[in-house]
């Protein structure tokens, strides 16, 4: 898949899986958002799992980009699940008052993909 940024986006069945493994700064995060949306358009994916196990910190700007990406993906017909958030990242975001209420979450990639499978089985969009 052609991409602006260097965060790989993989196709897993009818879903997309992307693992963020590098220190994000704003430009990389913005490029990532665009890459994800282009990939959804190109593949017609119905689900998206964003794995952030590798992120040691997520500030409000990056959190907002991740949340916005989920909402934009929803407009394009793909359901987003954010997985693997570290304990200290969750505690920090909540303390800052940024609980990312609009994004669905799961413990890890397996759980996230299973949840997308379950949605598909239920025939939900």
């Amino acid at each position: 898949m052609s991409q602006r940024g260097n965060i790989p986006i993989l196709r897993v069945g009818s879903n997309l899986l992307t693992t963020i493994h590098i220190d994000l700064h704003d430009t990389i995060a913005e490029a990532f958002q665009e890459d994800v949306l282009v990939a959804i358009k190109n593949t017609g994916a119905k689900g998206l799992v964003i794995d952030i196990t590798g992120l040691e910190e997520v500030d409000t700007y990056v959190a907002r980009i991740l949340a916005d990406t989920g909402r934009m993906a929803a407009l394009m017909g793909a359901h987003t699940i954010l997985v693997g958030m570290r304990a200290e990242v969750a505690a920090t975001l909540v303390r800052m008052g940024f609980a990312m209420d609009t994004v669905e979450t799961a413990l890890d990639v397996d759980d996230g993909l299973a949840m997308l499978q379950a949605r598909k089985a239920l025939g939900r969009k």
Binding site: E57, V58, D59, Y61, R86, V89, A91
Partner: peptide, 17 residues
Amino acid sequence: DAFATAALTTAASELGR
């Protein structure tokens, strides 16, 4: 600890931006 470290570096990230 990991929690204090994340709090400090996230604050640094916000203020740096």
